[in-house]
Amino acid sequence: MDNNARNRFYRWIFVFLILVSWEFIARSGIFTQSLFPSMFSVIKRLLVLITKEKLLLKTAYSISLVLLAMGASLVISTILILTGRKFQWIGTNVELMNSVASPLPGIAILPLVILWLGVRQEAMFFIMIHATLWPMWRQLSLGVDRLHLRYNRFEKAFVLSPLRRFYHIYCLGITEDLIAAMSVSWSRGWRALISVEMIFGIVGTQTGLGWMIYERRMYMDTEGLYAGLIVIALCGILFESLIFKKRNLRRMT
């Protein structure tokens, strides 16, 4: 068995042990069913939420918000990096903004954002961009610096047009950094979104996964609450471990 297969096997064993432990604790009577339902009842509830209460639609809506915010953050990051390299004073100030804004969780600035923008989709989007922008900018910025350091002499010695340089060196060369940036950005954005949805509730015509989980609590639907958390975890695994997985792009280094 090779290393990858062995690691996958260990992961499945670990998941199996967790499920078995869960079921054991649920049936042991240590906690009441309303606090710690059995895994079977959670899965049953999950299937009902999928088939009857549009869980997949709500999840897709939440994911689309994060992806939209990431797209906007990618555009903003690109503009900040390009202008920052062209004008040093912009670059310096963006660094300063990153130092100040990046440590601030989206939920901390939420009251301020609500004051400015109200309880609307624009406010949600603002928080989402705040959560996804800074890790995206930081990773891409480091990537651009690395490429510039490595290819500066080549760029000067072989005079490529600005567009060719931008595309062939920086756009193509930044792939690994972009994947890393998207992974961190997704992670921060996903966490921020779930929290924001719990607070904003119904904004517009569609609700998301965060609000669905919050509603389950209000209806004392503990199985549904756990089911929602499982969906959050599965989305995390899907995006972080599969879609934005670190690839062995040997030819990119």
């Binding site: 290819y151 030819r251 990119m252 280094t253």
Partner: peptide, 11 residues
């Protein structure tokens, strides 16, 4: 150049 790292690895 002496430095062979100036070749673009993705090309």
């Amino acid at each position: 150049f002496q430095e062979m790292e100036t070749l673009l690895p993705w090309k």
